[in-house]
Nucleic acid binder design. Sequence first.
RNA 1: GGGCGAAUAGCUCAGCUGGUAGAGCACCUGGAUCACAACCAGGGGGUCACAGGUUCAAGUCCUGUUUCGCCCACCA
Length: 895
Amino acid sequence: MRPGNPEALSQPYDPSRIEPTRYTWWEQQGVFQPRADLAAQPKGTGAKAPFVIAIPPPNVTGSLTMGHVLGESIRDTIVRWQRMEGRETLYIPGMDHAGIATQNVVEKKLRAEKKSRHDLGRDRFLESVWAWKEQYGGLIFQQERRLGTTPDWSRERFTLDEGYSRAVLTVFKKLYDEGLVYRGRYIVNWCPRCRTALSDEEVDMVEKDGHLWHLRYPLADGSGSLVVATTRPETMLGDTAVAVNPKDPRYTKLVGRKVVLPLVRREIPIVADDMVDAKFGTGCVKVTPAHDPNDFQTGRRHNLPEIVVMDEDGRMNDAAGDFRGLDRFEARQRIVAALQDAGYLERIDDHHNSVGHCSRCNTVIEPYLSWQWFVRMAPLAAPALEAAKKGHVKMYPARWKKVYLHWLENIRDWCISRQLWWGHRIPVWYRGDEMVVSLEQPEGEGWRQDEDVLDTWFSSWLWPFATLGWPDETEDLKRYYPNSLMVTGSDIIFFWVARMIMAGYHFMGEAPFAHVYFTSIVRDAQGRKMSKSLGNSPDPLAMMERYGADSVRFCMVQTPTGQDLKFDEKALETGKFFANKLWNATKLVTMRLGGEDMGPVKESQLRLTLADRWILSRFQNAAKDVTRNLKTYRFAEAAQAVYHFAWNEYCDWYLEMAKPRWALADLGDAMTPEQRVDLRTARWVSWKVLDGVLRLLHPFMPFVSEELWQAIPHDGETLAHAAWPKSKKAWNDPQAEREVAFLQAVVTAVRNLRVESKIAPGKLVPVVIRGDAAQLELIEKLESQLKPLARIETLTLARDGSRPGVAASAVVEGAEVFLPLEGLIDVDEERARLAREAEKLLTDLEGVKRKLRNQDFLAKAKPEIVAKENERLAQLEETLEKLRRAEQSLSSFRG
RNA sequence: GGGCGAAUAGCUCAGCUGGUAGAGCACCUGGAUCACAACCAGGGGGUCACAGGUUCAAGUCCUGUUUCGCCCACCA
């Protein structure tokens, strides 16, 4: 047992003073690495399997947001809890190279110098990105340290590191060899600003008010015309057919004939295709295979030419004739104007539709025909579907499972090539017609590597095993795969979670983790998403400076599960106040321990009072509560259980009840041996329970709990490695809980009467209590506790059943509590108050009576419910009766 | 168009297996009592969105409606 250091508490609680130094101290203690003694045991031979969790790698460009703080608070709370449970814990940190995001940042910097990446060339550009990464990247981890999280920093991974890159390229080759990666010329989502292809997940659909342009296309034989409707008139330059529904009687005659494309004067066929909905628009659809995914399919079915009319910047190309060089939106206006001039514009309708936007830069996405690499997803999805359905991977909250299943059941192939430079360059080599997929450049002259890089998510989906050394069969991989838990936002359930599960099964033959916990999305007080442009995102570092990292963690962890969190800075005060409360309570306890060594104290040699038995019982109950709620990811309930126990039971009641007993120390040598035992008992219990509170608190508020733990006598180097409290059956004491509940009710009643009677708070008052023999006996036993708590001068037990004259009174569990204060009490007011009380009870009583008159209730409700109602009836009647007696008794003194 | 979620005190939210509606903040009254004014003591405040249904009993289960939010979707 170490003695503790009470002097540490001589200054007021100030989180910014204690937190940073404590973090460094933990690092020096090696708290963050898996415990060597546990790691030395062969896996599975110890009592418990290792607990492994990986951070969702933040973008290398990232800085700490409240969203990160939320996720990190939850992850670290669990990690610390598991560590205290005695499990070998590994928390893996790392960063994501974030292809587009990072390249955008560096290109923006270049633009400020009036340069483009093309001016530098690929190699020099990459050099400058790496230089940027070295200088600015990973800022987030410096910030995160402030929060007190405990990843094993020595294992930090970066998705573009040598080893990790090999994993990514190996995966590409493996999938290619299995026929699950292929190259093809298809319509993809193209961002004309980022100048790259994107996956479907990287496109945000935004509802917009637009127009539906009706264009008249004349028949080639001059026998008439038809009208097509389109939301994107500029693509008409690339039309290679008009389609109608084969069952549409209006147009069957036209199928096989031709129309002349206005402006372009190209003759294009009218084809029949089921894709056309006869009820929409005119029932005629212009077909632009190179600029619309639907039309692309139609085009392939009918062997139509695919005419690309735009370049990769979204400008019209040479195929656009007179409109070449124009931006697509300017071209739209000019083409509509030209059509109108030539009499081809039938009309313009208002139209509401969804338009895809680049999730990175918000530019309108262009469906673009190009050569890209794809992953065939259906075979990968099958085991991932199975896993969720059979519960091998469980999701919390459970409703996300449905979202996950729906996506996997409708999975589409994944476009993984990006026309960027920052990323894993595709390991494919070309020479003439030859193509080789290889991690190394093939032998011989003239090989040219694919210019494109892989989607960032094509590297992060390997995170749970690539961070452990895969594809090598490392010790880490054997020991720490699969991970135990994934904690992340539901916004990346498709991007990342689903794909990690697919990769886990495909490459490791096993789910990457057993549980997924989805955190809330952090919003501002008005419910808007946090964003840089709105400037509504609070600076987490400023929050931690102001309230302490402990408070930020404590409050963020208590987010509503599965709902968005409306962040309100005001809420952070709660945690700070709580920490301050515990700081002062610990100061009090350390002072009263009088330096006594708790080491040799044996519980069996103590003489526990009712208060002791009560607080120990309540404590073991709280420990059970906290643990149960952590197990089910109910963090708010877990945190509340610690908060409530520590503040409202331990501080508000137990410490107050311990004070008179601590005061025995003032007797010094005059203490009898029995008093000595009483003092030691009060000291031991107050210390023991405080020690337990700090343990329960540690995962939530690591800094202040450690600080306080070091200040009291403690067993061990660091609280981070102290054992998690078990709910102790021997301490469970329902009778003590009932008795103290009665005591509390009496104290509250007296305090209430004092206030109602306007008695000065400091004034000691006489109290008379009537009740049955058992109650009076209990009160007698509790007298020494009761008197200071309620500021009672003299306590009289009315054993003869007599009642005092003029008195304020209340009924507590059938016992009557009187404040006999003739002259200080306004009799009329007191009578009125009693009448109000009685009236309230009468309403309740009516309800209970009604219930008990109901034959169905008596017959069908569970017997214990009926018994409870009967009991309640008796109690209400008794209380009511006593209130009335008190009122009558007062009326005789009236005037 | 399909799906999901939310609606409970002035505000933010709990309320798990149906059985006397809770917390924090805010508010009101009183208090410099030697751990703590970042505190203590006491208090007021709710037709649980609406309408039906199931049940002895509904904030809780079922159906529908309204409002708000989110996700998915190739009607040009």
